[in-house]
Amino acid sequence: MLTIRRDLVDAMVAHARRDHPDEACGVLAGPEGTDRPERFIPMLNAARSPTFYEFDSADLLRLYREMDAADEVPVVIYHSHTATEAYPSRTDAKIAQEPFAHYVLISTRDQHEHELRSFRIVEGVVTEEPVEVVESYRFAHTGPDDVPEQ
């Protein structure tokens, strides 16, 4: 189950719409051990393609160093599919290498209604999970150290 704040969902969807018809991609970082996405980090799709995405390698290094320094992990890794459903392709499943991340897919193929789904991808095996969108984590029981958002 992915529990996620509505403003973060809105930010991902807006990014996906903005970059359409190219795929958009990014990360929601959160404190290690909480499974709680907090920080929206849109990334550049170095492939600039409607059918492929890849974080630029220098950006990737900077991102992981920044998260390490802040004791954060990539709680959510998101990308958009611009002409197909919000389901991981075989390529997505094969390349996915963050077994503890929620892989969020956003489809922008319909210009009015987006589709957003979340998956775990472990050793190439895709498992869909429910998504609970909340206004705030304060009452969402996402962890004993819940800090109300600023």
């Binding site: 795929e23 991609c25 990360v27 990334m43 492939a47 393609s49 409607p50 059918t51 492929f52 995405y53 890849e54 974080f55 390698s57 990737l60 290094l61 992981y64 990539p74 890794i77 990308h79 599919h81 611009t82 002409a83 197909t84 991981p88 392709s89 390529t91 997505d92 390349i95 996915a96 290498q97 963050e98």
Partner: peptide, 28 residues
Amino acid sequence: VRFAGGLEAKVADGDNVTILPAVAGGAR
């Protein structure tokens, strides 16, 4: 290291080597 000789890239005493999986995928 892809831009510095790949597996033959030189490392020096005290260097930090970082391994990161690419974050990539696609609709096909």
